[in-house]
């Protein structure tokens, strides 16, 4: 049975279901317990599962991630929240040097089933340290999975998969998507990592977009249809592992690629995709690869300036048309 729920509700359901399923699953972070998270994703969990399983930690990001690792290698399944993904910078050693490497550097003798929930994105004048989308930093890390849903259904299926996965998963949630509604079936389902979603089929240009930009890309694609430009929109859903098969298949058909993301262009998540396509499919391309991305400057804290950081429908349309010139 399908019903329409928000991404916040979908994530919340995933947490409820997985905590119900496995009593060794714990949920913690700054403000996640009593108030249910500043974005409300963990609402109701403490009431249902108690303070031992769902609690408010001190403001100490290194300790949250380090402790999650300690729990994971001794039999628990921790789900920790960084209040803003920007705070991953505080816990960079724990994420980059520990979470992804602990199993490997200790001879593969541990499983590290940690899920880190990470709110990202520009959303209401929060400025340079509370608005970023830092996932590219961790695409570069080893031993981590990088997940980035664009809608309620994917968010639920991917989060359930993340919690059950025996590896560390960084789960990036765009703050502007929390309120967005979408169809999610009532029955249980999981979405595997490394399987992109073709959001719209097309023949002229391929757009690869993530998170909130999937919606923007779809809007652009619809407008382009009116000009008889047929756009295929692909949402990779996980950046590590990346479903290159689906992306490459599409480019072989269209010969054109536009990559859209909110994180800054330089060294951004699109750079890796562009490089892979250039390595493998250069002679299938009819036009240079285009990237529509955030500018390479910090995100100003002035709400009136925010719009200049986010790729717009017009930006995407322009980039698509450039590939057809």
């Amino acid at each position: 049975m399908m019903r329409k729920i928000t991404m916040r509700e979908a994530l919340n359901e995933a947490l409820f279901e997985e905590m119900e399923r496995n009593k060794n699953t714990l949920c913690f972070g700054e403000d996640v317990g009593y108030i249910g998270g500043i974005f409300g994703v963990t609402r109701g969990l403490q009431e249902k599962f108690g303070k031992e399983r769902v609690w408010d930690t001190p403001i100490a990001e290194c300790t949250i991630v380090g402790a999650a690792l300690g729990m994971a290698i001794t039999g628990l399944v921790p789900i920790a929240e960084m209040q803003f993904a920007d705070f991953m910078a505080v816990a960079f050693d724990e994420v980059h040097n520990k979470l992804g490497k602990w199993r490997y550097m200790h001879g593969g003798k541990f499983e590290v089933p940690v899920t880190l929930r990470l709110p990202i994105g520009i959303s209401g004048g929060a400025g340079p340290e509370h608005s970023q989308s830092p996932q590219a930093l961790f695409v570069h890390s080893q031993g981590l999975y990088v997940v980035i849903p664009s809608n309620p259904r994917d968010a639920k299926g991917l989060l359930k998969q993340a919690i059950r996965d025996p590896n560390p998963v960084l789960f990036f949630e765009h703050k502007k998507l929390y309120e967005v509604k979408g169809e999610v079936e009532e029955e249980e389902f999981l979405i595997p990592f490394g399987k992109a979603a073709v959001k719209k089929q097309g023949t002229d240009v391929t757009i690869v977009a993530t998170a909130l930009q999937v919606t923007t890309a779809l809007e652009a694609a619809e407008l382009l249809e009116k000009d008889n430009i047929s756009v295929e929109v692909i949402d990779p859903r996980t950046l590590v592992p990346l479903d290159t098969d689906t992306i490459f298949e599409s480019i072989k058909k269209t010969g054109r690629l536009v990559i859209v993301h909110e994180d800054p262009k330089r060294g951004g998540t699109g750079a890796e995709i562009a490089a892979l396509v250039a390595e493998e499919l250069l002679f299938d391309l009819e036009a240079p690869i285009k990237r529509v991305a955030g500018p390479d400057v910090p995100i100003a804290q002035n709400i009136h300036l925010e719009k200049y950081y986010v790729p717009s429908v017009e930006d995407i349309i322009e980039a698509v048309k450039e590939t057809l010139d």
């Binding site: 300690g70 729990m71 628990l76 724990e94 550097m105």
Partner: peptide, 29 residues
């Protein structure tokens, strides 16, 4: 792992926080 030897962090002092998680795990279990 059979002897409870969980490894070492190459960056100094990280076991302070890893051990906190292990302690939480023991207490919870």
């Amino acid at each position: 792992p059979d002897k409870g030897i969980l490894g070492q962090s190459g960056t100094i002092g990280e076991s302070y926080i890893l051990a906190a998680g292990v302690g939480y795990s023991i207490k919870y279990r």
